[in-house]
């Protein structure tokens, strides 16, 4: 499936001339709420063409030093989490080349694949933001599923999962004993604007270099009304972007993934939200890598 170029940069550049690459990973096998993530990368890229490339709040244009979108990965639907190994390999290649990879899921299970690549990069931890804690061992007989993604990730690299509002008793027990459970959504949502966003709690115990795993279901249904995201008590868009801003000040972020969009015909808002968050993550990484915007040079 052809998905076009995220943010439609002009001029388009190939990956060797890009500082960041977008990796579409249309994996859609085991979402608990609703299927459809297989078309999510294409929907996000289509919406991104209507998003300005300049992040007004950060004063950064992540396309100004080259942004490339790679063809979608072909991922097996086999149960084994090795099926996601091509994603781990692609992520590793881009990170080793010094490029910032932004993975566009796909369901949040893709973390089971990206973690495999991250493990080969060295001392890297994962900051996970998701509506579900993700610490179950199996889900309907599957080892790799959204509800087990953090568990699979932890088999390869340290991970801390925050922003959740759903967790099974066994997942909570597992995550709490390992200090993998970060703050739940209620701790992070609707914080007064004068308080610093508590991003330090997202990275507690993690290495200095981290990878961001961001699932859209961390947002409240008011901010992200879509099938599969009905649980109340999630973060607002402002809650989330303040947290991300603080996170990028606290840790060096080597890459990110944006997962969990389940498109619904006639509702373009979730894809727009995803596209804006993709722009924000790239703009934050741009700010971290380059001291000044290119337009000042």
């Amino acid at each position: 499936m052809h998905v076009g170029q995220f943010l439609a940069p002009e001029p388009a550049v190939d990956r060797e001339r890009a500082w960041a690459v977008v990796l579409p990973a249309p994996f859609d096998r085991s979402a608990g709420g609703a299927p459809g993530a297989r078309v999510a990368p294409a929907e996000i890229v289509a919406a991104s063409t209507q998003v300005e490339t300049y992040d007004l709040e950060l004063g950064r244009d992540p396309t100004d030093r080259g942004l490339a979108t790679l063809p979608p990965l072909e991922l097996s639907y086999a149960d084994e989490d090795e099926a996601l190994e091509p994603l781990g390999r692609a992520l590793e290649v881009e990170a080793r080349a010094g490029r910032f990879p932004l993975v566009l899921g796909g369901e949040s299970t893709v973390l089971a694949g990206t973690a495999r690549g991250l493990a080969r990069l060295g001392d890297v931890g994962v900051v996970r933001l998701e509506g579900t804690l993700g610490g179950d061992d199996v889900w309907h007989g599957l080892r790799a599923a959204p509800r087990t993604a953090v568990r699979r990730c932890a088999e390869h690299v340290p991970v801390r999962s925050s922003g959740w509002r759903l967790a099974s008793a066994t997942a909570r027990e597992w995550a709490t004993t390992r200090d993998t459970a970060g703050p739940a959504a209620r701790r992070l949502a609707a914080r007064p604007q004068v308080e610093p966003a508590p991003a330090d709690e997202l990275v507690r115990g993690l290495p200095e270099i981290v990878y961001l795993s961001l699932d859209l279901a961390v947002l409240d249904p008011a901010a992200l009304p879509m099938p599969g995201n009905l649980e109340p008590g999630g973060l607002s868009y402002a809650d989330l972007t303040r947290l991300l801003d603080e996170l990028f000040r606290l840790r060096r972020v080597v890459g990110a993934e944006l997962t969990g969009l389940t498109p619904h015909p006639g509702n373009v808002l979730p894809a727009f939200v995803a596209a804006r968050l993709g722009l924000r993550v790239l703009a934050l990484a741009h700010r971290q890598r380059f001291p000044t915007p290119s337009c000042w040079e």
Binding site: E52, T53, Y54, D55, L56, E57, G59, R60, D61
Partner: peptide, 23 residues
């Protein structure tokens, strides 16, 4: 309440040093 703009269009009106991050 603006939250989306092209940098060039801001520069055209607010000058070459226009920086959206100032708010």
């Amino acid at each position: 309440g603006i939250r989306s703009a092209l940098h060039e269009e801001l520069q055209d009106v607010y000058g070459p040093a226009a920086d959206g991050s100032s708010g």
